[in-house]
Design a protein around this nucleic acid. Structure first.
Lengths: 127, 127
DNA sequence: CATTTATACTATGTGAAACAAAGTATGTGA
DNA sequence: TCACATACTTTGTTTCACATAGTATAAATG
C-alpha cells in the first residue's frame, strides 16, 4: 500500500533521517531503500526525494559530500549532522505521541498495533 | 506534546472522520475533542479545523446541518456520509501500513509501540 | 562501436493544506 | 454593562509532494 501525499509529508523526512542515522547514503540509494524497506509504503520518486534532501541540507540537518563510491561513478553522499540527530530524536518522540493519539481515537486499535509490530496478522483486517 | 505542523498533515482529517464516525458533532466541539482526547497532540485551531470541514464537505465525505443543540445556540452539526465512511476505512488501512513501515525503519520500536498501546483506552471514540 | 538501459542528480511549475490573523455574532456570568 | 466563552467565516502566507522535463555517465547488449 502506497500512502497518500499528505501522510508522506510528515513521514518522509523522518524516514530519511532515520536511514541516514545508520550510515551515509546517496540520493538514488535512499529512493530504493525507502521503497524496499517499507514494502512500497514510503516509496517516493526522485522529484520528491531530492528536493527534500536539499531542504534538509539547507536547514543544516544533513550534509553532503561528492565522492566516488563502489562504482566508477560520482555520487553525492549525505550524512546526519548533530542538528539532524536532534531533529530525528524529536521526530521519533513526535511519532510515538502521534501513534498514541491515533490509538486513543480508535483509528489504530491496540490489538492490531501489537499484531503489526510482532509480525502476526501481517497487515490485514483487525482481529 | 504538540506535534509540529507537518506531522498533522494526513492525521487531521482522519482524526476528524473517526470522531464523526461515532456521532454527529459541530466544529467547535471537534476542536475541543481533538485536544482533549489526544492530550493536545492533535490539537488544532479553528482556522485549521473549519477549512478542513469545508474541504471534507466539498468532497462529499461529510455533510452538515444547522440545528439547535443543548444550548439556545445554532450549531452546524456534521456527520459522515457513505463516501466518508469509505474514506475513513482507507485512511485507517493507510495508518496501519504507515506505522508498520515506520517500525520497519526503526523509527518506532516494537517494544515501545506495545507499551504505548497497552493500558490505553481499549476501544476508541465511543465516549 | 553503437545503442539501449539503469543509474544519478538538477530544475521548474502546480496544487493542496496547515495555520495565523482578523472579523462577525451570540449566550452567560459578574 | 462589560468581559468572556462559544461558534462560524474568510483571506493570505508558507510550505511541500509530485509531475514533468532535462542533463549526464556507467554498464549491458548486439
Amino acid at each position: 500500500m502506497k500512502i497518500e501525499r499528505e501522510l508522506m509529508r510528515g513521514a518522509g523526512p523522518t524516514a530519511v533521517l532515520r536511514l541516514l542515522s545508520g550510515r551515509e547514503m546517496y540520493g538514488y540509494e535512499l529512493v530504493e531503500a525507502l521503497s524496499a524497506k517499507t514494502e512500497g509504503v514510503l516509496a517516493m520518486g526522485q522529484s520528491t526525494l531530492y528536493p527534500m534532501l536539499y531542504n534538509l541540507e539547507a536547514k543544516g540537518e544533513i550534509e553532503a559530500e561528492w565522492r566516488q563510491g563502489d562504482s566508477g561513478r560520482d555520487r553525492k553522499y549525505y550524512r546526519l549532522t548533530g542538528k539532524g540527530k536532534k531533529r530525528l530524536e524529536r521526530d521519533t518522540e513526535a511519532w510515538r505521541a502521534l501513534m498514541k493519539a491515533m490509538t486513543s481515537l480508535g483509528v489504530l486499535e491496540p490489538a492490531t498495533v501489537r499484531a503489526l509490530v510482532t509480525g502476526t496478522n501481517g497487515g490485514g483486517v483487525p482481529a
